[in-house]
Design a protein around this nucleic acid. Structure first.
Lengths: 237, 237
DNA sequence: CGATTGGTTGACCGAGATCAATGGACGTGG
DNA sequence: CCACGTCCATTGATCTCGGTCAACCAATCG
């Protein structure tokens, strides 16, 4: 319900093009695919931990992340939490909703995003063949990513999940070399990987003591990419 | 590679319309959405346990299940197996592939399916607005189902997974009332739920001794739908 | 500087995996 | 028609990975 925070800034216009960089595999919008809808978009800036979409919100809009990081979350009534995915710049969320958003979206860092009416996306897909094609490619990628996550959560051990996560993030966070600045907390990582925070810590520690990575708070350096790949069961891919 | 079995029968034509019934949530093709492509389709009949698509096969075709049940599987090199989804009549597989199919597909029972060139699907989506719309709805459903699976595998207990599975199958297998004729083995169930076969057995036994279900080999009767919902954490939906 | 928050480590416990045996349904051949 | 073998489901015994509970530490913030 966009309650506490959520200052909607203004109709969009400029915004530097490099804001669309970053990420890769998930639901990344190739370039300025949504450019034709710029006029329909509302730019939003949200503070860290703000709720962008509440689980169960009527699904009138979808969201394109321009900068920062967000998480999609499902909360079970007994408090168990599952992070569905992390959204980075260029990622689109919510166009596939039915009546309501089945996951909430929360800002992991301060974020900038564009909000589009879902109906506009659908209408554009109807009249713009090229856009429709890109949208199909986009969701096909989401389906594939979802399957990969099913394997991770269904069959991989805690260590393998953590190693896989680091590899995924190293690929998505463009920012030079082997250093990854993880935007999310250990709790978020744990809820993404179906683990507890303690297990995530221990897994990172183990990788560190084995010389595979260096850890300093949220900065992680991959020292031995090959070993990390082995630890993640990379051959599965 | 369609190696051992896989007798491709003939160009398609008739086939009773009720063959398209069944299932509901996943990637079900609403009705005869692919009807315009009938001429491009090849009908295949495969025996139980035949490999329809091998993991890693070049992704030239996609498949519409007409009858029977199939499973999508990912095999890790150390033998761990994950079933991605069960396909029932009306379910479409493979149009979202990239270069290769990242999951294999195997027949759970004897199956009948139609094979379409992926390029034909793409071309039809390009020229037929209505089909494109249905294809989007279809994949949106797949994305949502994938997320539900992530919650199941990431946060639910063994008992909850099993109860959720029974509810899912009760909804998908149209066949009158509360009796479910599960087409798949306990092993398949376990690999779908990220469990072992023993845990699946014990979970079913527990539900049985509590009077929630009756079990007789692959026939399962839901005696107390409400209790089953509670056991599955249904409120999450 | 305390106080709060998030990360790390240790001790212990339990859900589910592993190992092993048994049972029941079905198919084949005598 | 029955004996036997195979396959699969079920149940029991034990082990282990990861969860739980708890303490501690380091960074950030008033």
């Amino acid at each position: 319900m966009l309650a506490t925070v959520a200052p909607i800034v203004a109709r969009s216009r400029p915004l530097p093009p490099q804001a669309l960089q970053g990420t890769a595999p998930t639901g990344t919008v190739p370039a300025n695919v949504l450019e034709p809808l710029r006029a329909m978009a509302v730019t939003m800036r949200m503070d860290r931990d703000a709720e962008i979409v509440a689980q169960g919100d009527p699904a009138g809009y979808c969201y394109l992340l321009m900068g920062g990081c967000a998480r999609t979350v499902k909360l079970m009534e007994d408090g168990r939490r599952q992070v569905g995915e992390f959204l980075l710049a260029g990622d689109l969320f919510g166009w596939e909703a039915l009546e309501e958003h089945d996951f909430g979206v929360e800002a992991v860092t301060d974020v900038t995003l564009l909000r589009y009416p879902r109906s506009a996306i659908e209408a554009l897909a109807d009249r713009d063949r090229d856009f429709a094609r890109k949208l199909r490619a986009l969701t096909a990628g989401q389906v594939r990513a979802g399957r990969e996550r099913v394997v991770l959560l269904g069959r991989k051990t805690a260590r393998e999940r953590i190693a896989s996560f680091l590899i995924e993030m190293a690929g998505r966070i463009r920012g030079g070399g082997t250093m990854i600045g993880l935007p999310m907390s250990r709790t978020d990582m744990a809820d993404y990987l179906g683990l507890t925070i303690e297990t995530v810590c221990r897994g990172l520690t183990q990788l560190r003591t084995r010389g595979v990575i260096a850890v300093e708070r949220s900065k992680i350096v991959i020292l031995d990419r090959r070993a990390l790949g082995i630890a993640s069961c990379e051959a599965v891919h």
